[in-house]
Computed example of a mutant assay.
Amino acid sequence: MKTYAIGDLQGCMHEAQLLLDRIALDAGGDCAIVFVGDLVNRGPASLDALRKVAALCESSGGRIEAVLGNHDLHLLAVACGAQKASKSDTFDEILAAPDRDALMDWLRRRPLAVMAGQHLLFHAGVLPQWTAGQAMALAAEVQAVLRGPDWRDFLGQMYGNQPDRWDDSLAGVARWRCIVNAFTRMRFCTPDGVMVFGHKENAGAPEGSGLLPWFELPGRRTLDVTVVFGHWSALGLLLRDDVIGLDSGCVWGGKLSAVCLENRALLQVDCPEYQQHAGKEKG
């Protein structure tokens, strides 16, 4: 059975359905699918996208899954009152939906990371100190919090850039925030693995900063698996033996992309420009 990873939907449900149809033809039967996060926000049909992916996951017997992205977590925080919506959010239809509570309950139970064979899939990044096994264990810690009774309290404390480096001694909310920031927000790091946020519009770091894309850090301990992620529309599609980046800017007028993990077949659909680049935060 083939496994496909799909990049950031961001509410672009029409394009997502076209891509799912392409996958069905390419697979020639049953297949596994992992959506690499950011199902919602900025595109025109976030409610439809959330409903569709939830229905697919629930009916698939575990063959289809979606990992949490930063926009998905932000939706959860806004929906439970832990955070105010921003001007660029497009959550109103979801928040007013009759099945809102059921959708939020489904969303908060999604994983931060999954393993598919020798592929580790997540939304944004993994810190260089983590092995694949450790990354999965740390993801499970946060997943337990989000699935537990205190999930609203955690979402209220989730925002912030500190701590910005991993330490095994981190505990409680600080530990979970660091894990969430790596899995759902990280792009650039210092060579010794400190996360640096704020450089969103470019694929390269500012000249002279010394910053590196997280997947280029020396000594990264996930080099024994292929890492698969989205989140970085300025980076665009990236296909390497050890790295697959799948955010090809659907909501920004680019493409929605899927890759078959077994043979690296690339499937794409063109997308209208639902959001303009100028003055807009990408990713």
Score class of each variant (00 low, 15 high):
Gly236His: 13
Cys271His: 02
Glu262Phe: 02
Asp242His: 10
Ala234Leu: 10
Leu256Trp: 04
Gly253Ile: 10
Trp252Gly: 01
Asp270Tyr: 00
Leu266Arg: 15
Gly245Ile: 07
Cys260Leu: 05
Phe215Gln: 11
Val227Trp: 04
Thr226Cys: 15
Gly253Phe: 01
Pro213Gln: 10
Trp214Tyr: 08
Arg264Pro: 02
Leu266Cys: 06
Asp242Ile: 03
Leu217Ile: 12
Glu273His: 02
Leu238Gly: 02
Gly245Phe: 12
Leu266Glu: 05
Glu262Ile: 05
His231Gly: 01
Leu223Ile: 07
Leu246Phe: 09
Glu216His: 11
Gln275Asn: 10
Asp270Arg: 01
Leu239His: 00
Leu212Ile: 07
Arg264Ala: 09
Ala265His: 09
Glu216Pro: 00
Ser257Thr: 14
Pro272Thr: 13
Thr222Arg: 01
Asp270Gly: 05
Arg264Tyr: 08
Cys250Tyr: 07
Asp270Val: 03
Glu216Phe: 02
Lys255Tyr: 10
Leu238Gln: 12
Glu216Leu: 13
Trp232Thr: 04
Leu212Arg: 00
Glu216Tyr: 07
Leu239Met: 07
Tyr274Val: 13
Leu239Val: 01
Asp224Tyr: 13
Thr226Ala: 15
Val228Lys: 12
Ser257Lys: 07
Leu235Arg: 06
Gly245Asp: 14
Pro272Trp: 06
Asp247His: 03
Val243Asn: 03
Thr226Gln: 15
Val225His: 08
Tyr274Leu: 08
Phe229Leu: 09
Ser248Gln: 02
Ala265Asn: 08
Gly230Thr: 11
Trp232Leu: 04
Ile244Thr: 05
Ser233Trp: 01
Val225Leu: 11
Gly219His: 12
